[in-house]
Simulated scan of single mutants.
Amino acid sequence: MTCFCLVGCVESQQVENTGHFENRELDACLAIVVDLSGSFQSYWDDRAYTLFLQLSELYFTESMGSDAKLVICQLSGNDQVVLFEGQPDDLRNRFSGPEEFNEFLKAKSDPSSSKVFDATRRSVDYVRSITGVTENTKLLTVILSDMWDSEYDPVLRNTSREKLMQSLISYRQQGGGMALYFVAEEQMPEWQSIFNEAGFEPGHYIIENELVATPQLPQFD
């Protein structure tokens, strides 16, 4: 006969309740969202990709010695928005050079449409969910896009815009900043209104249109 003793057989011993993983607070997190839709293709090849390299290099340099994360997202017809998350130097280690990384981005895109509202919402939501992001973490999301959303159904468009507003409000309340570059001139009033409604203060966001030759870069220090 086999007997299992569930209670009182062995004197219990106190075990220190310690975690198995270190939860380190991040100093900063930069998300760069790149427009890989057909409408932005010429800008990406001609100017936006150069700015992307400048931003990532600047962030890599200024984040040395700190706990920082870099997130790369894309907006197009592909529903896979987040493509990369890691430390700034992980990007260099993963790809042999800019050409290989550019090919990686294009392989993950679907140029048939441009889901700007949805991709922006999912990007800022992802940043807020990263382990180590706290109220003290400096958050910045940079979007390289003409900001034309390809959804023309007014009901679906308004629904996507409202969801985006709620995410932007939560992101702004956590101290997040926004930077939009290469925005189509016709889209400037729309995005100015969106940031105003979400409560962003001057200095916490920038919107630069497609005509700006030398964009104002953010400070990461």
Rank of each mutant, 00 (worst) to 15 (best):
T137E: 00
T137P: 01
K138L: 02
L139I: 15
L139Q: 15
L140K: 13
L140Y: 15
L140D: 15
L140R: 14
T141C: 08
V142C: 14
I143A: 13
I143N: 10
L144V: 11
S145V: 04
S145E: 03
S145D: 01
S145P: 04
D146W: 12
D146C: 03
D146A: 07
M147E: 08
W148H: 04
W148M: 12
W148V: 10
W148C: 09
D149W: 10
D149C: 12
D149F: 05
D149P: 12
S150P: 05
E151P: 09
Y152A: 05
P154Q: 10
V155R: 15
R157V: 10
R157S: 06
R157D: 12
N158S: 02
T159I: 11
T159A: 02
S160F: 00
S160N: 12
S160V: 00
R161F: 01
R161P: 04
R161T: 00
R161W: 04
E162D: 07
E162L: 11
E162M: 14
K163D: 02
L164E: 05
L164S: 08
L164F: 09
M165Y: 07
M165I: 06
M165G: 14
M165D: 03
M165K: 15
S167G: 11
S167D: 05
L168M: 13
L168A: 12
L168T: 12
I169R: 11
S170M: 12
S170H: 15
S170N: 10
Y171M: 06
R172N: 09
R172H: 13
Q173H: 10
Q173W: 05
Q174I: 06
G175Q: 08
G176N: 06
G176F: 11
G177D: 09
M178A: 12
M178G: 03
M178P: 02
M178K: 12
M178W: 08
A179F: 01
A179M: 08
L180E: 11
L180M: 05
L180V: 05
L180I: 10
V183L: 13
A184C: 00
A184L: 00
A184Q: 15
E185H: 15
E186S: 13
E186G: 01
E186T: 07
E186M: 05
E186R: 13
Q187E: 08
Q187S: 06
M188S: 13
M188Y: 14
P189W: 15
P189V: 11
P189I: 05
E190A: 09
E190W: 10
E190P: 12
W191N: 06
W191T: 08
Q192A: 07
Q192N: 14
Q192T: 13
Q192I: 00
S193D: 12
S193T: 11
I194P: 02
F195I: 01
N196L: 13
N196Y: 01
E197S: 10
E197V: 09
E197M: 06
E197Q: 10
E197Y: 10
A198L: 01
A198S: 03
A198H: 02
A198Q: 01
G199P: 09
G199Q: 01
G199V: 07
F200E: 03
F200P: 13
F200V: 05
E201L: 11
P202G: 04
P202D: 01
G203A: 04
G203C: 00
H204L: 04
H204E: 08
I206R: 02
I206Q: 06
I207M: 07
I207E: 02
I207D: 02
E208S: 15
E208T: 02
E208F: 03
